[in-house]
Design a protein around this nucleic acid. Structure first.
Lengths: 241, 241
DNA sequence: TGACACCGATGTGTGCAGACATCAAAACTC
DNA sequence: GAGTTTTGATGTCTGCACACATCGGTGTCA
């Protein structure tokens, strides 16, 4: 059902709004959209309703469908994130995700050490060791796969559904980093060991050691990436009062 | 337009799904819903489409509208959070938010010290001082208001739109804590000073001091609240593979 | 004469009703 | 049991009535 007319309409409009092709304040008329996308009113109306719930547009009688500015968009919605990653703001989005990740993962490691179910702890250790092996062998695709699995397990093991939900976004940042050639063929030796340290600390329930090791990974990751996106402009959203 | 039929239908169904009144796997028929809510098909369809984008339901031809399990819900959607806060899972939701906040705020403080615009830094210092005064005077409502403003400014000052977007949720946790009588009339003296420390560190651009002081606030907050929700069951979401 | 309040015309989203298309589950046939 | 048909739900389209924010014209008062 991913290519229903409804879905395609959402995709079309969402992409164009977030790319800036349809700028904030731009007003669309439902009738024009029907005409432009060659679909019926019901399809347009359902699509607009979804975009409205994402904060991308608002509707006003006698005016039309108004495109909202970026600070009204829901920055945590997976679709919005995906659209931003496909836009010129890709760099800024990746930075935001990396910052979020580096804040969350150490906390997740701490929680996982306290709460994760036993099987998950064991799997985490296995994956960490497999990562180290793959890293030594320079198996880049295999390493990426394990890396994603490791961090997904970690987030899931926290027992916080919000943390767990970030695994998809983390996978995106890891993949993006690899695809863009920011990863060396042989990952940093210390970083490999830190992953093992995180897993083993969680396995033995040592919360502060888990956080500490995770924090080291995150600080290294951030310092590695920071120079690539220093040119990305930051946006300061005024406090709602 | 918050009381449109469309909006009311979303509210009705969203509330019932998240409360567990409509359990995962439960199947609804559009026709039945029209009848039950006394609205037309278009209203139901638009509402279902929005719920679908939130991960609350999925539609299948020849079957109907199926309610999805909690691990499919988008845990970052403001509506979902609001509905969970109004449900029996309120405690678990507050804990999740508190954990997220305690992970994010120190990171936000660090970023704010590096990036926040000058006027925001000044305002942050003012608010921190006002907080200390209100705390000393035992002005609880005023203190809550300033507390919310302080943390909103902090998150906004990070220049990370995802962090900034959490201010609403943070306000919710702070308000919830006060309403439920978990706040003493006179806040802990050290905590008041830590707020001032955060603000002043940000004002002078001292990132690590800002993080450190913010981390102290978060650790104290978490340890204060931890005993109130130890009975909340944790949910471990299996890793998607 | 000019400023201002009122009020109706207009245009657009909102809601309704009914039709047909589509497609996958379920029943049926061989 | 494999292939085919039937069936029943969502998907899509269309015409209509209504609500209501905006705009512009009209009348009143200073």
């Amino acid at each position: 059902m991913t290519s229903s007319l409804h879905h395609r309409a959402i995709e079309n409009l969402g992409t164009r709004i977030i790319s800036g092709d349809l700028p904030a304040g731009h007003i669309m008329l439902a009738e024009k959209l029907e005409d432009e996308l060659k679909v019926s009113r019901s399809v347009i109306r359902e699509a607009v309703r979804v975009l409205q719930s994402l904060g991308l547009v608002e509707t006003t009688k006698r005016v039309g469908i108004r495109v909202l500015p970026p600070n009204r968009w829901n920055p945590f919605d997976p679709q919005v994130i995906r659209w931003r990653l496909a836009s010129k703001a890709r760099g800024a989005q990746l930075r935001s995700l990396a910052e979020l990740r580096s804040a969350v993962e150490p906390a997740a490691a701490e929680l996982a050490a306290q709460n994760a179910p036993a099987p998950l702890r064991l799997e985490l250790v296995d994956v960490a060791h497999a990562m180290r092996d793959a890293g030594h062998r320079g198996e880049v695709p295999r390493f990426l796969e394990l890396d994603i699995q490791f961090h997904s397990l970690l987030l899931s093991g926290s027992g916080n559904e919000m943390f767990a939900n970030l695994s998809g976004q983390v996978a995106e940042t890891l993949t993006g980093r690899t695809v863009h050639g920011l990863m060396p063929d042989h990952p940093h030796e210390a970083a490999l060991q830190w992953h093992v340290d995180v897993a083993e600390a969680i396995a033995r329930g040592d919360a502060s050691a888990a956080r500490e090791a995770s924090d080291k990974i995150m600080r290294r990751t951030m310092s590695q990436m920071s120079d690539t996106w220093t040119e990305q402009p930051r946006v300061f959203i005024p406090v709602h009062r």
